[in-house]
């Protein structure tokens, strides 16, 4: 007999994944931290960070990436929220069909999709640059914005909408005072799932701008690939990690307040 409720048995089943996590997630992270604080010879140094903060090129790219990420997130939100709202309020059957439709492209590799996008642009004689980059970003990340918002709205207890109408709220007021605030947990997850990945993207940037525009992800990739500046690349990754952790913390506290 299996004892499904036996916590020890269950935790044993998770061991393969825990080992995997340790080897391929925890260890690399530890190595990033170690490399970031070492020079070529392996001696401890803070020079990698000094280099980042004193070179305007790196700092500029960092802020430029944040800017691109910000606009991508904003556009995704503006396009995604109404779609998620519409789907979330629809009857279950209709909404699942719609959800399937926009999740379907996600099952193709994002590189393939991006290469296809490049072809479309070149066919249409549209020069590659910031505009096409933004398009590619939004195209790739929009589902990550829609899905969490859709999920939150779909699971929302719709009787609160009736309650608000009952108490005298018209359609607009119902949306502003009830539906939007209640969809915030989904919005936060959507932002988290779009903003940080866009900062660190390099493949989409490379392909959709023919390497004309560099984002923070591209710089990390270039430095690490060069071999010579591996430690500097590690330091840049470390900075980004810290940034991700900070935004996640912010996201967590907001989320808790809303969901509880």
């Amino acid at each position: 007999m299996f004892h499904f409720n036996d916590i020890h048995t269950r935790s044993r089943w998770a061991w393969p994944y825990i080992i995997f996590l340790f080897c391929f997630v925890v260890m690399p992270l530890v190595m990033i931290v170690i490399y970031a604080f070492e020079d070529n010879t392996g001696a401890f140094t803070l020079n990698n960070f000094v280099r980042f903060f004193t070179r305007s090129e790196a700092i500029n790219t960092f802020f430029y990436s944040l800017g691109i990420a910000f606009y991508t997130t904003l556009v995704c939100f503006l396009l995604g929220f109404p779609a998620a709202y519409f789907m979330g309020m629809e009857e279950y059957k209709v909404s699942t069909v719609l959800a399937m439709l926009f999740i379907l492209p996600m099952s193709f590799n994002s590189l393939l999709r991006t290469i296809a996008t490049v072809e479309v642009f070149s066919l249409a004689n549209i020069p590659l640059g910031e505009g096409t980059l933004m398009f590619g970003m939004v195209y790739n990340f929009l589902p990550f914005m829609i899905y969490p918002i859709y999920n939150t709205i779909q699971k929302m207890d719709k009787s609160v909408i009736e309650a608000a109408r009952d108490l005298g709220a018209n359609r607009k007021e119902v949306f502003i005072k009830i539906i939007f605030p209640l969809s915030m947990p989904g919005v936060y997850s959507g932002i988290a799932m779009v903003f940080m990945p866009t900062v660190s993207t390099f493949a989409i940037t490379e392909l959709l701008t023919r390497n004309k525009i560099k984002l923070f992800g591209s710089i990390i990739q270039e430095n690490i690939q060069s071999g010579v500046l591996l430690n500097y690349g590690a330091a840049l990754s470390f900075i980004m990690l810290v940034f991700i952790l900070l935004t996640n913390l912010f996201n967590k506290t907001e989320g808790v307040n809303d969901e509880k």
């Binding site: 207890d157 009787s159 609160v160 009736e162 309650a163 608000a164 109408r165 009952d166 108490l167 005298g168 709220a169 018209n170 005072k177 009830i178 605030p181 209640l182 915030m184 809303d258």
Partner: peptide, 28 residues
């Protein structure tokens, strides 16, 4: 329409607004 009727409802599963505290629920 529902929001213009001088009728209010106590719903079966209460349907309180989960993002508002007691005061804001009542004051809605």
């Amino acid at each position: 329409p529902a929001h213009k009727r001088p009728i209010n409802t106590v719903f079966q599963k209460y349907a309180l607004f989960p993002h508002l505290n007691v005061y804001d629920n009542v004051a809605f």
